[in-house]
Design a protein around this nucleic acid. Structure first.
Lengths: 162, 162
DNA sequence: CTATTTTGCAGGAAAATTTCCTTTTCACCG
DNA sequence: CGGTGAAAAGGAAATTTTCCTGCAAAATAG
């Protein structure tokens, strides 16, 4: 009677599905035909499998990654934030503010001394300082904030390998 | 005589280019036709602009984002690493190892107490422990390692807003 | 063990898209 | 005021997507 503990009853991915995902992760604009050739199938089943995985939520989004410094976002900062009080209201207010800030690419709730880790991008130090003082610290209930500057990107991928 | 300080002499992006990038960032599989409609141009100039931005490196990659927990990668950990010595050789060895490890999605060199910040994904705590002990700590010259566990993802985007 | 249903894939055709070529438009300059 | 060059529009061929039909293998039932 008991089913496997899955959130939305994902139909389980077979080896071919994973192979398709591998190719799509590397190139979201790959044609069905190319993918089909890669997994040794015709276009039809590949198309159906992709559609199924889009609908089941396995595939979240197709995105284009840009060269940040070439579009004027050359500075990356990891930013730690703790709130002064941890009421539901304070947390919701903070989250709402963060979601609206385009400088913040990532916000994680973490274990340890701080409550949140933010990945922030800016054009330069002036812009980051403005963000820090006038936007981030201006959110009510924000307590301690600590910035760690990213000096170099060694690796940056989204490829999940199964 | 002096030029703008650009790495590879990017031809400078106009308002329409940025609008195209905005749409492509949101949906890498958008058709040229859809994008053209979005920027009120015909397909031809849009196609040319995209090709130009691909070649100039402004567009880095088209990728597909997956639902990590639906493909069995439900645990995310931020991992700080410092090396015991900071010779060129030690650093290169570490970097080489990290690039080969599929669990590591991101590796940044940072200011502060630690040398590197790693974003690591794993199926569960067992798998992460195995990574920590047998893979990460096994790299020669790795000194202090500290793990911070991600309890929740508030925001995760790649959309650079200009 | 055979019949039947189901599932997944191949092949083909219509619709849509990409991509290339030619023509047109517009702005700038002589 | 026409010349020149850059960028966009329009059109057409090639490619791709997407849907349909049919077939084969596996699963299920009798």
């Amino acid at each position: 009677m008991a089913k496997a503990p899955q959130k939305e009853e994902t139909p389980a991915l077979d080896r071919i599905d994973l192979e398709i995902l591998k190719l799509l992760q590397q190139n979201a604009r790959a044609t069905i035909k190319e993918i089909a050739a890669g997994v040794h199938l015709s276009t039809t089943p590949v198309h159906e499998r992709i559609k199924r995985m889009e609908e089941s939520g396995v595939i979240r989004q197709y995105v284009t990654l840009l060269n940040a410094s070439k579009v004027g976002k050359g500075l990356m900062v990891i930013c730690y934030v703790s709130l002064r009080q941890h009421s539901r209201h304070a947390g919701d207010k903070f989250i709402k503010s963060i979601l609206e800030m385009n400088e913040v690419l990532e916000c994680l709730t973490i274990s340890g001394e701080f409550d949140f880790l933010l990945k922030v991008v800016a054009a330069n130090m002036d812009e980051y300082y403005h963000f820090h003082v006038n936007k981030l610290s201006a959110i009510e209930n924000v307590g301690n904030v600590q910035s760690v500057f990213v000096m170099g990107v060694i690796k940056q991928t989204h490829q999940l390998v199964f």
